[in-house]
Design a binder for these strands. Structure first.
Length: 664
RNA sequence: GCCCGAGUAGCUCAGUUGGCAGAGCAGCUGUCUUGUAAACAGCAGGUCAGGAGUUCAAUUCUCCUCUCGGGCUCCA
């Protein structure tokens, strides 16, 4: 039979040959290095028989394409180790994920795992790897499979679900085709239902580490059993594993909760309750600068600034539909003066009230309202996380009311505006998601959904943004774009969202008078840019690793006199800096200079200026820029002020190099 | 909310097989007057998260509550 290769060449092989035979035919080195094959675009085991005419690509152990399979196979090895150490363990699912893999187990007699157990599991895994057990694929008809897996409660449920028509992607990954059930066996005692493919044998694995134990509900359903989930990471080689572990260490160092404490920005007094923070002067300064910048941009961007109260009567939330659809996320009601009030979980109904407050003409549209609106949401207590997820947070919220004709242009300029503001904070790497009309019930006719969705798509194209389409992922009231940013160490954060809404204008019966005198219904667009000021601040801390650029730094420069003789001059320089509009301070020279330098460096100040005899004589300063070890001496005060002025005006970033990811 | 883990000085952390609670940094007071990442001495700082139980004795063991962390779910 004849097999084609990706480079266009072809090879003749004997009938019944496998991808491994093909690799061996090409060369022994390739045969040794190959882990799996992609046959006509589908990944299969190396020992799967090939058919005549197929195009076969061999995937070797150093290829990133092998990662998914390596992780999947490693998950099997972990399951085997856990079953051997805890006989009677039921296996649920064990997929590969972004950085590694996990497997969900139900241990016998309600046993649970803790991190202390990971070492023993990992040791057992290494023994299995050392034993180099082959992964053997077997297939069964559905009925046979049901009988075969009758004692495997979770596996049997999966078989029933995938053969009962209720397939979804995750389940399909786990068992694949619904007419045949496959399983893999790699010893007399271990097998697991799985579509594969897998690496040829356990000996091909090894660059892994078990990370943590967690609880996870079966099928993510809080009403189903709580399983023990073990997370691990696995890579193609030792260096990649080490690089990943280094990234985690780097991320730990950047943790905004740690830096917020060290830099005295924000704290979470226990007395306030979960997810509630107070902002200290330095954190508040940064926040004010962020907000001021946002206001400036919205002002020049054609937005009208509005304010709204923190609570409103229940009728507002009944009309908006929040009490029907969002009650779980709302704070409990307050009874006052015979009425029921709720803290606001969103700002939109207030902005709708402002729109409805007067008769609107098409000449008023698009009408863009902007508010830094603080909302309260009853997040699960286990879900709050520093500034990233809190129970009270401030949205940089905007609602745009537009005519249907204006919708597409407005969406394009909105997205451009959002990206422009994000870029000012130093984010350059974006990933967008376009969510389209859900299959279930939704409001609005087909035409308007198509127009809005197309408008969002065109906006993404015009912005030249990478995006994925989440078919059916939109809200019932309209399609949306979510924008993820990637921070300095490659983590993704969802920040901005642009959502078209056909529902609220309907519910509140909004209208404007059109040029022909008829009454028309406007379209509403919800837009959050930073999303939540608190979360954005948290992301910035981690993105900058605490090194806020000069335009945001709470103290931009500190002037240190070498000795008491220079204290007056230091004060003089501080006054000059302040007069030029900068945030500067000085310290009394009652400690050695080295110590004062050290303290200031720990505070991650952008500039430390040292002044001594030479500087007093020459009206100069010694400039120590953050991240640089050698001071620049004899810089004139005016030159430094000009330099800082430019750096602030241009919002120069000054990001430190993340610790080299693959450092040995 | 649920599963697992944790809570010791303002911060970072030791420690107690149940027997007077420890360090470094930060703070305060002195001395030192300093040219680039930690001067010296002293002082002060704690209901060992809170409550209950076991015990001659609990920071340590048990239970409950609160808070935090890792997840699940949801989302900004």
């Amino acid at each position: 039979m004849t097999i084609s290769l990706p480079d266009g060449s072809s090879r003749s092989l004997e009938e019944g040959s496998t991808a491994f035979d093909l690799a061996a035919d090409i060369g022994p080195g390739l045969a040794k290095a190959s882990l799996l094959a992609r046959v006509d675009g589908i990944e299969v085991d190396l020992n799967a028989p090939l058919v005549d005419g197929a195009t076969v690509e061999l995937i070797t152990e150093q290829s990133d394409d092998a990662l998914y399979t390596i992780r999947h196979s490693t998950a099997h090895v972990m399951a085997q180790a856990v079953q051997e150490l805890y006989p009677g363990t039921q296996l649920a699912i064990g997929p590969p994920i972004d950085d590694g893999f996990y497997y969900d187990f139900e241990l016998p007699a309600g046993q649970t795992l803790s991190d202390d157990d990971l070492g023993a599991i990992e040791d057992r895994m290494r023994e299995i790897v050392k034993a180099n057990q082959p992964f053997e694929r077997h297939e069964l008809a559905v009925d046979d499979a049901l009988a075969f897996f009758a004692d495997h409660t979770f596996k049997a449920e999966i078989i029933e679900q995938v053969t009962g028509g209720s397939r979804d992607a995750e389940l399909a990954d786990e068992v694949g085709s619904a007419d045949m059930i496959s399983y893999y066996k790699n010893s007399d005692t271990f097998l697991d239902m799985c579509t594969g493919p897998h690496v040829p044998s356990t000996g091909r694995l090894g660059h892994f580490k078990l990370m943590k134990v967690a609880g996870a509900y079966w099928r993510g359903d809080t009403d189903r059993p709580m399983l023990q989930r073990v997370y691990g990471t696995a890579w193609t080689n030792k260096k990649a594993l080490k690089a990943h572990l280094n990234r985690l260490v780097e991320a730990e160092k950047r943790d905004h909760r740690r830096l917020a404490t060290e830099l005295n920005l924000v704290s979470w007094p226990e007395e306030l309750g979960p997810g509630l923070a107070v902002w200290h002067p330095k954190g508040a300064t940064i926040r004010r600068l962020m907000e001021d910048y946002s206001r400036e941009r919205h002002d020049s961007g054609g937005y009208d600034f509005v304010y709204s109260p923190h609570i409103a009567k229940s009728v507002l939330w009944e009309t908006s539909g929040h009490l029907d659809f969002y009650a779980d996320g709302m704070y409990p009601p307050m009874e006052m003066d015979g009425a029921t009030y709720y803290p606001k979980p969103m700002n939109c109904p207030f902005h709708v009230m402002i729109f409805r407050g007067e008769q609107r003409s098409y000449r008023d549209l698009p009408l863009r309202m902007f508010e830094l609106g603080t909302v309260y949401r009853y997040e699960l207590s286990g879900a709050v996380h520093g500034l990233m997820r809190s129970r009270g947070f401030t949205q940089d919220d905007s609602h745009i009311f537009a005519t249907r004709e204006q919708l597409q242009d407005e969406l394009a300029s909105l997205l451009a505006f959002v990206l422009s503001v994000l870029r000012a904070f130093g984010f350059v790497d974006f990933q967008a998601k376009l969510s389209t009309r859900p299959l279930e019930k939704s409001v609005g006719d087909d035409d308007i959904w198509d127009e809005a969705t197309e408008g969002l798509r065109l906006a993404l194209e015009a912005a030249n943004l990478d995006y994925v389409v989440d078919e059916g992922g939109g809200a019932f009231y309209g399609p949306k774009i979510d924008v993820d940013i990637k921070d300095a160490i490659g983590r993704a954060w969802q920040l901005s969202t642009i959502q078209v809404d056909f529902n609220l204008p309907e519910r509140f019966d909004l209208e404007y008078v059109s040029s022909d005198g008829s009454r028309q219904r406007p379209v509403m667009i919800h837009r959050a840019l930073m999303g939540s000021i608190e979360r954005f601040f948290g992301v910035l801390i981690e993105h900058y690793a605490g090194n806020f650029p000069a335009w945001l730094a709470p103290i931009q420069t500190r002037v240190l006199p070498v000795s008491a003789d220079h204290a007056d001059y230091a004060h003089d320089v501080v006054q000059q800096l302040k007069a030029a509009g900068f945030r500067a301070d000085t310290t009394e020279p009652n400690e050695p200079l080295g110590k004062r330098i050290r303290r200031s460096k720990i505070e991650k100040l952008p500039y430390i200026l040292v002044v001594g005899d030479d500087d007093v004589a020459g009206q100069t300063v010694g400039v120590n820029k953050r991240g640089q070890n050698d001071p620049e001496r004899d810089v004139s005060v005016s030159a430094f002020i000009e330099r800082l002025r430019v750096e602030v005006a241009d919002r120069v970033l000054d990001l430190p190099e993340p610790a080299a990811a693959d450092a040995e």
